[in-house]
Simulated assay, not measured.
Amino acid sequence: MPVYSLHRLTELAATTWDGLVPEPQPFLRHAFLTALEDSGSVGGRTGWQAAHQVLLDDQGQPLAALPAYVKNHSYGEYVFDHGWADACQRAGIAYYPKLLGAIPFSPVSGPRLLGAPVAAAQLLDELTAQLESQGLSSLHINFTDEAADALLRGREGWLERLGCQFHWRNRDYRDFQDFLDGLSSRKRKQVRKEREQVAGQGIEFDWREGHQLNEAEWDFVYLCYANTYQVRGQAPYLTRTFFSLLAERMPEAIRVVLARRGAQPVAMAFSLTGAGSLYGRYWGCLAEFDRLHFETCFYQGMDYAIAQGLQRFDAGAQGEHKLIRGFEPVITRSWHYLCHPGLRAAVANFLEQERVGVQGYSEEARGLLPYRQA
């Protein structure tokens, strides 16, 4: 059965693509991925060239798919292989271009190999067989779910890599105070003090869905988002147009909390929701206020998840500072198929050592959680 590479996802109908997605996670939706493409956030000179892989049956209907991009760098992936690329450069081995199965700029675990397992396995085998003939050094699939892990584990040539994130779980809390009651006394006082400090600066919060923001407010959201990159001397990954397109195409999945001081907005956090989860993605502020980051990015999202009955809050990739606020360590997985046998052997050895470190780090982090001991 043929495998086709789609350089624009609009070549496939939204209902056809979304019909392959096993859960309503917003990042996999046709609307999200085409907003990235149509806004210029990927494509062009970004180093992200859409190459979505689709296995078709004899009637031309998709059986399996992988959202994928040809990459000429390793930025915006959040599974860091810069060291592998540097080693290849020193050894005279071409590491780029590579094929990446992932959601751009979104370190969120979820389905990657879409379709029935038998078809997805056939798609995998076809892709790895074609890599070298297409001038690609490797295939990487980042932030996989359990179904993809089951297909990839033990498969010849594939290397598993572990990572660690911090997610908050809603244990059917009645309200935020109910959550606080489960913390140790010292941590409970710290969280309460942080929230009081923000309130004492006269800052209030306003939650909006995608259709409830006008273009001027989207300008503010983007200004805040872009500022988080600009203060580090970097260019933002996403364009301003992306936010307007997403608000047009999937407004029901968007949640934005605006922090205001009087009538003046001073900060925001942008999230998406779906599959019983809240996904905190972007934040930014235009003025410095003590503890505002923790309130806007964490406590407001926890409050919202409790009020809406959402079971999980994924507030982003990094941050040991989340631990003392009740976010628990979660192991993430990515998978890597490297064509060059010497590189594959070297990376396999590195990953064995890294795995021990990641698992140890996760266990150590779990011991630092603020919850009261039973």
Rank of each mutant, 00 (worst) to 15 (best):
10 T>K: 08
101 G>H: 03
10 T>Y: 11
172 D>K: 09
117 P>H: 06
202 G>W: 10
266 V>F: 06
62 P>K: 00
154 G>M: 06
237 Y>P: 15
24 P>C: 15
82 H>G: 10
131 L>W: 07
244 S>P: 04
149 D>A: 07
15 T>W: 02
335 W>P: 14
188 R>C: 13
192 R>K: 10
182 G>Y: 08
9 L>F: 14
206 D>R: 00
338 L>P: 07
157 G>V: 14
99 L>F: 10
131 L>N: 11
351 L>E: 08
61 Q>F: 12
309 G>W: 06
65 A>F: 11
78 Y>A: 12
200 G>A: 04
124 L>Y: 04
49 Q>Y: 09
340 H>M: 00
195 R>V: 14
54 V>W: 03
224 C>K: 00
69 Y>V: 04
266 V>K: 08
4 Y>T: 13
306 I>L: 03
41 S>M: 07
55 L>P: 11
321 H>V: 08
268 M>I: 11
2 P>N: 04
283 W>M: 11
290 D>V: 03
151 L>K: 01
364 E>T: 10
228 T>M: 04
3 V>A: 00
225 Y>H: 07
78 Y>M: 06
187 K>G: 15
23 E>G: 02
272 L>V: 01
222 Y>C: 11
266 V>M: 11
74 S>T: 15
81 D>L: 03
88 C>A: 13
22 P>H: 02
229 Y>I: 00
9 L>V: 12
314 D>Q: 05
57 D>N: 12
331 I>C: 06
317 A>F: 01
